Computed example of a mutant assay.
Amino acid sequence: MDVLRARWNNLYKDRLPSLAKARDPVQKRWPVYLDHCFARIVLDNAVGKNRPWTAVVKAPAVKHMTSAQLEAAIELAEKIATGQDDLAELNEQSLRLRGKKRKVASMEGSAASSTKKQRTAPTISAYFVPSPSTPNVKPWVTDTAAVEPVADVERPDLQITMAAQIQRIADSSLTPFRKQTLTLLCEIPPGRYSTYQAMSDHMTKTSHKTCARAVGSAMRNNPFAPEVPCHRILAADGSLGGFGGHWGENGKFAQKKHDLLHDEGVRFDSQGRVKDKWRA
């Protein structure tokens, strides 16, 4: 059983997400790229079959599946990894079993659970402009010239510092995705900020598809904070977001994030939303 569990963990936690992030051609389309999404798809189809896997096996599945169920999950995951089964079709089947429409799958990567109102709120900050994928979202800043980086003009010392941080990231053993995400942070000057969704939109437009949840995970595991400024990333609605692995105003390190932003000139209102639309 231990061998089977190890194989299953490797497949859905490492191998499949790695293939997805690399956009490996074994699949025509990678509709998901997070480990829990792969687990859902595989377990719904291999274990649940005609219903969600949670109706068949207690969570966590890896501890409660039988040998036969583990083998079935491993077999299907291997077929996905080698292109023998279509991931997109399996994903659609999984969503149908759960009574969800296709667009719900795109929400699986949200940085945190949010209300319907929050999903339609501005998803950009003052720094990253909206991508074509969010044409109906009213940007907080319409003058793109106003958000050009100023470090090279007003703070040459900052430019040097950020160059050093970028080199630290490049020399690290982090995954390419985490390196890219953390490097983007170095483009955000003090007193400015972005959001998890804005960064994911920007990366989806310029490099490869990602989501706010994946960006949030990279922020949570930033080994170079606060020099690499993950504290400059806020929630889509302008609230504090996460810091140090905890979320929101009640998070363990919320005050530290507030202090860092306050020192840089970023202010929040009585509702916990950032006051300024952007700061030079």
Rank of each mutant, 00 (worst) to 15 (best):
D2N: 13
D2F: 09
D2K: 11
N9Y: 11
L11C: 06
D14N: 15
R15K: 13
R15D: 04
L16V: 01
S18W: 05
K21M: 13
A22L: 08
R23G: 07
R23N: 15
D24V: 01
R29L: 11
L34Q: 15
L34K: 15
L34I: 11
D35Q: 12
I41V: 15
V42E: 02
V42C: 07
V47I: 13
P52L: 05
P52K: 02
P52H: 04
A55K: 15
V56H: 06
P60L: 05
P60W: 05
A61K: 02
A61D: 03
M65D: 02
M65L: 13
T66N: 00
T66P: 00
S67N: 09
S67D: 07
E75D: 11
E75C: 09
L76S: 01
L76Y: 00
A77I: 00
I80H: 12
A81E: 07
T82L: 07
Q84E: 13
L87I: 05
L87T: 05
E89G: 03
L90M: 09
E92C: 04
Q93V: 07
R96F: 13
L97S: 09
R98K: 15
A105T: 09
A105V: 12
S106R: 13
M107D: 12
M107R: 12
S110I: 14
A111T: 14
S113Y: 13
K117D: 09
K117W: 03
P122L: 02
A126H: 09
Y127T: 05
F128N: 08
F128C: 01
V129C: 09
P130E: 02
P132G: 04
T134K: 11
N136I: 12
P139F: 00
T142A: 07
D143Q: 03
A145Q: 11
A145M: 08
E148C: 02
E154F: 12
E154K: 14
P156C: 02
L158W: 15
T161G: 04
A163Q: 14
A164F: 06
Q165S: 02
Q167E: 10
I169N: 00
P176Q: 06
P176Y: 01
F177T: 04
Q180T: 11
Q180C: 04
Q180E: 14
L182Y: 00
L184I: 05
E187G: 08
I188S: 06
G191C: 01
R192F: 01
M199P: 01
M199S: 03
S200M: 02
D201A: 08
H202Q: 10
H202S: 06
M203H: 10
S207N: 12
H208P: 00
K209E: 12
S217T: 08
A218R: 03
R220G: 09
A225D: 14
A225E: 15
E227N: 08
C230R: 11
H231K: 06
D237W: 00
G244D: 07
G245F: 03
W247D: 10
G248L: 04
E249G: 11
N250F: 11
G251K: 04
K252F: 13
K252W: 10
F253H: 10
Q255P: 01
Q255H: 10
K257P: 01
D259H: 14
D259T: 15
D259M: 12
G265M: 06
F268D: 07
D269I: 07
S270Q: 10
G272W: 01
V274E: 02
V274W: 02
K275T: 13
D276H: 14
D276A: 11
R279Y: 10
